[in-house]
């Protein structure tokens, strides 16, 4: 590992001013960044540690919903009563992610800012559209775990398990910096995660100096009937190959459903066409069949990841059965 310096600022303003460019990364839980530094994928001169900044480590109730400070660990999010009662799909997806040790270290702010798992991006010998070169090695190379939707520019998948769930709940990401023009802003989750078409070098809508300070879950979108299903190769320390999040009658509103696919595209993929199928009928076998028929539409599988289309069909069926409270797996 190349030696680096550690800055320990005590305020958001100080931390922000230390990051003039992305060459100086922020560190919170460190589970992604330190592993990348050890593998020489990132070789910063200095990292800016955010853990000394006060006020970012609590989960609080507000008039609008639940505010999760960016430094709250994944485990503390998943075991929090307000999260479990109001936004259970979030607790469920975190329970599937990584390992208990990592969930005790990794923060929710860091989770949504982690770098893609693309093995070309995580190999010091390759450059691509994401890191100063051009093109995408995975499109013509080894692409078993890559995107089947929206993969023309870059075939990465968004690695965060919570990203599609945050999009489904209509969460917002609170961002702060010390620049006057930027100040504090809230970005809806569906605009926070970027597609390569928007900017191949960034996965999230942060500019240098901007810090995620909280994840905001709106109380109006608490949903009783929900399901989260995902498939992965290993049960532990692995990333999803595909996931399906369904919120049925979101916030108790008839006709307001959400279907968001994860790990099959560079950013979480909301599927309004599937939501319409759910709105149009009952949650029965016909509905499952119609969803399965539709879910692969628009997919553009690469040489090794065509399996993700039938995988999504299976997960979709499982998701609807779970909504109905059926125990049967499949």
């Amino acid at each position: 590992m190349k030696p680096f310096k550690v800055a320990l600022p005590g305020s958001i303003e100080q931390a922000s001013s230390l990051q003039q460019s992305f060459d100086v990364p922020f560190i919170a839980g460190g589970t992604d960044l330190l592993a990348r530094i050890k593998e020489y994928i990132t070789t910063p001169e200095m990292v800016v540690d955010l853990k000394r900044i006060g006020g970012l480590g609590e989960i609080t109730s507000t008039d609008h919903g639940v505010r999760i400070g960016a430094l709250v660990t994944m485990n503390d999010v998943a075991t929090n009563l307000q999260v479990r009662e109001g936004f259970p799909a979030l607790a469920e997806t975190i329970g599937n992610a990584a390992t208990p040790q990592i969930r005790n270290m990794a923060t929710i702010g860091g989770n949504i800012c982690q770098k893609p798992r693309c093995w070309y991006l995580r190999h010091e010998g390759y450059t691509c559209a994401k890191n100063g070169g051009s093109g995408c090695w995975a499109r013509e190379g080894e692409n078993e775990f890559h995107a089947i939707f929206g993969n023309q520019v870059c075939a990465m998948t968004q690695p965060s398990n919570v990203a599609p769930v945050l999009v489904a709940y209509g969460a917002s990401i609170e961002i702060q910096s010390n620049a006057e023009s930027l100040e504090k802003r809230e970005v809806p989750a569906d605009q926070f995660f970027l597609t390569p078409e928007q900017d191949p070098t960034r996965e999230v809508a942060l500019k240098p100096g901007e810090i995620v300070t909280a994840v905001l879950l709106p109380a109006k979108n608490r949903t009783e009937k929900w399901s989260y299903t995902e498939a992965r190769e290993k049960q532990s320390f692995d990333w999803a190959q595909a996931s399906v999040t369904v919120l049925y009658q979101r916030g108790g509103r008839r006709g307001d459903h959400r279907v968001v696919l994860g790990a099959v595209s560079p950013a979480p993929l909301r599927r309004a066409d599937l939501e319409q199928i759910i709105a149009a009928g009952d949650l029965d076998a016909d509905c499952i069949q119609a969803l399965q028929k539709k879910i692969g539409e628009g997919a553009n599988p690469l040489s090794q990841n065509g399996y993700k289309v039938p995988m999504l069909r299976g997960l979709m069926a499982k998701a609807i059965r779970k909504l109905n409270g059926e125990k049967k797996e499949g």
């Binding site: 550690v6 320990l8 560190i27 839980g29 460190g30 330190l34 592993a35 040790q101 990592i102 270290m105």
Partner: peptide, 13 residues
């Protein structure tokens, strides 16, 4: 009291 990975924890922290 919580299990964590000492390889990914900065001692300075």
């Amino acid at each position: 009291g919580k299990p964590v990975l000492s390889c990914l924890e900065l001692a300075a922290e």
